[in-house]
Amino acid sequence: MGAKFIGQFLLEKELITREALLAATEQQLRVNLTLGALAVAKGFLSEAQADAINLEQQRSDKRFGEIAIARSMLNSQQLDELLLAQKAQRVFLGEILIQQGHISREKFEAELVLFNQEQERSAELVKVNLHSLPQYGVIEDFLDMTLKILLRVAKEQVKITSVGYTALQCAYTFAQRVKGDQQFDYVLALPENMVRILCQNFLRIDCAVVNELALDAIGEVVNIISGSGCAKLSARGKEATLDPPRVISGAAPANAVCIGMSSIEADFEVRFYF
């Protein structure tokens, strides 16, 4: 199990409670202002302008400052000032936990060292395990595109936490057949909340329940990942084409390669059915 962030790590070790972690993360959101909020507070932007930039930011890969400058809403001097202010007022989770009395500074600092070590170890382990897979080339290409596309279309920062042959129990499983020089199913297995969050971020609409549209949206996200994966294969001289994505059910086949993934929201799996 790869720890997601320091708060989760402390929680798993029962050094802080759920309530403490929640209170601290909420406090962190309150005190760490976004560039947009800072710009409004300083009178550089109107709220409507900040909203417009945020909206464009959600639709593109660009940073807030980049958009604001391209639209001549901020000059580079103002942006520098905002970035400095943001850095100066930024409070880390550990600091809040300490201030709120949930953990002592000495204990926190000792745990932070352990946390960083564990992060490094698990990253190393994942790398070694991935390399030892017989289908490493294809898997690497598709995993790489999974991380990039989830970040690009759904603003979801994801990392690989495990490599193995056991499948996680997940509410929704999406599969897409890749054909050509190599035939396999690229599979994304997600818990319910992850389906809703991905749908919400991809379509920029509220997604309170998993409905037809949500399933269709995630199918299309899978399609975009697979299509980009195929493009990578093609760039390496391999032939690859796709069938449309589909929702599947039932247990994973015994030879499925299961890659554990983790984001702030949930754990999920990318699988390869060869």
Binding site: I225, S226, G227, S228, C230, A231, L233, S234, L242
Partner: peptide, 9 residues
């Protein structure tokens, strides 16, 4: 407008 960005496609 396609996901499939292979040379063949």
């Amino acid at each position: 407008v396609s996901s499939l960005g292979t040379e063949d496609a």
